[in-house]
């Protein structure tokens, strides 16, 4: 049964806004209400079409009024932010965790809410040398994340599960996304790969699994309009090694010994270039891959882009000018081959 009134949180950012834009194209959805603390910029607002934007903070009990008054039946919670934009962790944590709690409290009171879709992250599995090669939905982290985005996400998931116990009539879909990538989206990872010289941890090479942002939106839309409760890992097929991804982007890796990581990372953080929290560094050490069998078989979705295709699309779409250009490398190869041929 298609939803009538959908509430989308975090609508001023790429994922929330684009999801609202997609939902407007679906005639079965009667109303779309977008909520965020800041208004979306003009281009995004134009794409969102008939979405009704409500400038509200989900930490404010006002959200409860929005939900009851407009008889929202489906809540899509995508506002959980990674630590890419603001440097202030406590504000972000408040937005993520307290915002979710407030939103859940509002939903619990509302008799009309029937479905909830939460955008979570595969970061809840952590990253450690004791990790299995691929995480299934039933596995937990080896070490509990003690701070940052992963901790936020783990807490949010916990509250959502609690909400599910108190409102068993609400169908809950939790989607654990791997790192999103694409030409239009701005995340920690896209900023990282946009650096001309990319700091890595010496002696470590992470396995990266990525998901094209368009696939992510499609999954969110499917979860919103269809009724598929459960927890699902969402990630592209295959992996890229961090070193390989850097090479494919034509970047130069700058391996930093792990002892020197903290001064280097504090430089990058103060320069607001990339996120370099301990959690992010662990991720860049060990990486993380999730098993998406359940997504395919139960959720019924196969990502259209593999990790590699998504990454290449990002490199092309962003027009990253390679520091190491493939043409140059090919020219060098031809040059040496030519010299060898002359030698004979």
């Amino acid at each position: 049964m298609a939803p009538n009134v959908v509430l989308v949180t975090g609508v001023s950012r790429f994922v929330g806004g684009s999801l609202a834009a997609r939902l407007t194209a679906n005639p079965a959805v009667e109303r779309i209400i977008g909520v965020d603390t800041v208004p979306p910029h003009r281009e995004l607002l134009r794409r969102m079409g008939r979405t009704e934007f409500v400038r509200a903070d989900i930490r404010n009990p006002l959200i409860s009024k929005v939900i009851t008054n407009s008889k929202v039946d489906t809540v899509v919670h995508v506002s959980m932010g990674d630590h890419s934009n603001s440097g202030n962790r406590s504000v972000l944590k408040e937005m993520n965790v307290l915002g979710t709690m407030q939103l859940l409290a509002a939903c619990q009171k509302s008799p009309t809410v029937r479905r909830m879709v939460v955008k979570s992250t595969s970061a809840v599995y952590g990253a450690s040398p004791r990790d299995p090669a691929m995480f299934t939905e039933d596995m937990g982290p080896k070490d509990l994340p003690f701070s940052g985005y992963a901790r936020d996400a783990a807490e949010v998931e916990g509250y959502v599960r609690g909400f599910g116990r108190r409102r068993p009539d609400v169908d809950i879909t939790i989607l654990r996304f791997t790192n999103l990538i694409g030409p239009r989206i701005d995340t920690v990872l896209t900023r990282y790969f946009a650096l001309p010289v990319i700091p890595t941890v010496l002696g470590y090479d992470a396995r990266l699994q990525m998901l094209h942002a368009e696939d992510a939106l499609e999954v969110l839309e499917k979860a919103t309009v269809e009724n598929i409760p459960g927890i699902y890992n969402v990630g592209g097929d295959g992996i890229l090694m961090l070193s390989q991804a850097i090479r494919r982007a034509g970047r130069v890796a700058m391996p930093v010994p792990s002892l020197a990581i903290s001064p280097v990372s504090s430089f990058f953080r103060s320069a607001r270039l990339v996120d370099s929290s301990p959690e992010q560094v662990r991720f860049l050490n060990f990486g993380r891959v999730v098993d998406t069998t359940r997504l395919r078989e139960q959720f019924g979705f196969t990502p259209g882009w593999t990790t590699r295709q998504a990454f290449d699309d990002f490199v092309r779409g962003r027009d990253l000018r390679p520091v190491v250009a493939p043409d140059h490398v090919a020219a060098v190869e031809r040059g040496i081959a030519g010299a060898v041929a002359r030698l004979r």
């Binding site: 396995r207 295959g238 992996i239 390989q244 090479r247 891959v289 190869e333 040496i336 081959a337």
Partner: peptide
């Protein structure tokens, strides 16, 4: 030997450009 050189060059090019497959376990 020139074929060997050509193959080594092609291998080096694939490595430099990241044009190779790695499975989910990280096996290259």
């Amino acid at each position: 030997w020139d074929e060997t050189v050509a193959e080594a060059l092609a291998f080096a090019r694939r490595r430099v450009l990241g044009d190779y497959e790695v499975d989910e376990f990280g096996f290259d």
